[in-house]
């Protein structure tokens, strides 16, 4: 069973991904959509659940991560204040991700997703 990034052997967790269309959103503060995914025993369970904000807001996204009890947030750029806030709330963050969020999720499941990773689908040949 893979030990997920920095979570020391956790194999069950709830992941929130800040998205823009099918990609990880480039900026957390300009994001209006997030997708929640549940992982159990190292694989995805159920369908990803999308949530929409009425306006882009880092505060609201953080609030959503807390209220939905996310263990991990995957996002593009995030400002220091909100990064520190999520850390303080004991929510882990993998930021600086570029590319389709499905690919990021696959890498996470393989325990290969690291901050600032660029997904193959984001690079044009």
């Amino acid at each position: 069973m893979p030990a997920f990034f920095g979570l020391e052997g956790w194999t069950d967790m709830k992941v929130m991904i800040a998205i823009f269309r099918n990609d990880v959103a480039p900026r957390f503060d300009l994001t209006v959509e997030a997708v929640f995914v549940k992982l159990e025993n190292g694989s995805m369970t159920g369908e990803p659940r999308e949530m929409l904000l009425s306006e882009p807001s880092s505060d609201e996204l953080c609030g959503l991560a807390v209220s939905e009890a996310a263990d991990l947030v995957i996002c593009g750029g995030i400002d220091e204040v909100h990064y520190e806030y999520l850390n303080w709330k004991k929510i882990r963050i993998i930021d600086g991700i570029i590319g389709p969020y499905q690919e990021a999720l696959e890498l996470l499941l393989q325990d290969r997703l690291t901050p600032n990773a660029i997904m193959p689908g984001a690079v044009s040949s």
Binding site: P26, G76, G77, I98, A122, V123, S124
Partner: peptide, 10 residues
């Protein structure tokens, strides 16, 4: 190189 500029510039 080859990545949409939006995502690099943020």
């Amino acid at each position: 190189s080859g990545v949409q500029t939006d995502y690099i510039l943020r």
